[in-house]
Design a protein around this nucleic acid. Structure first.
Lengths: 121, 121
DNA sequence: CCGCATCGCTACATTAGTCGTAGCGATGCG
DNA sequence: CGCATCGCTACGACTAATGTAGCGATGCGG
């Protein structure tokens, strides 16, 4: 799967809106998780693998490739880090964290206090 | 694929953060697009199908089921609409539209002026 | 009441994406 | 040299998405 072209989006998005192309890219498994992890600072392939838990190296590699082609992350000598565009995306994702906590409470009202240690950067 | 349980997330997210569970749910194909479409107002199955373009009814149905179980959307007599939580999510997604336009310009610098008609609600 | 159209949705076969594991070359270190 | 770790690739097994066909229900004109 290659990078979605905003003008003529892949994966059937069709509407022509770059938003759909973005949804297409970030809707891929682990994509947002990787961006999130990298927002804590630059990381190596291995540390991303561990941080994401059970991601397989092959899929991690292809997601990193996707994100690199989308210019949201870039390689450094010590691993990967967010580009400016990636940082901008992360800032949008930030309030998402709080939303997800409320959402989690809605879905599983029991044990709501365990994730308080979640915080970006 | 069922609704991710924030406490014990599915699909290998593992970190325990509800954020990852949210990424898991919204990272599914078309999920965010459906939320976006519904933000324009309540819609029927058929109109969603047309709005999303090439989505197949089977996958649309399962995404609607996912989102309904996640309590982000709900059925009405005339179709589907966002719940309060879904509306809250949409408000987070809003600035995403602008970001995606900048991003699109970064990726495909040619023909940048065509998507100006994109606007939520 | 009947034929026809549309709607919401399901079934199913094909195709694409992901997972898990094994392992390769490169680098570092004792 | 021997061994460990790292970044990454290959490959087979599995799972999810796609595309098409079609079912029951509802509505509507004749």
């Amino acid at each position: 799967m290659s990078i979605p072209k905003p003008g003529m989006p892949v994966r059937g998005s069709q509407s022509g809106a770059p938003l759909m192309a973005a949804f297409d890219l970030l809707g891929r498994r682990w994509a947002m998780g990787i961006v999130w992890q990298l927002s804590y600072g630059s990381a190596t392939f291995r540390s991303l693998q561990n941080a994401c838990g059970s991601i397989s190296p092959s899929i991690l590699n292809s997601r990193l490739k996707d994100l690199r082609e989308a210019q949201l992350i870039e390689r450094t000598t010590e691993g990967y880090r967010l580009t400016e565009m990636g940082e901008a995306l992360h800032r949008l994702l930030l309030p998402f964290g709080e939303w997800s906590i409320k959402w989690a409470q809605l879905i599983t009202p029991e044990e709501t206090s365990r994730w308080s240690q979640l915080g970006p950067k």
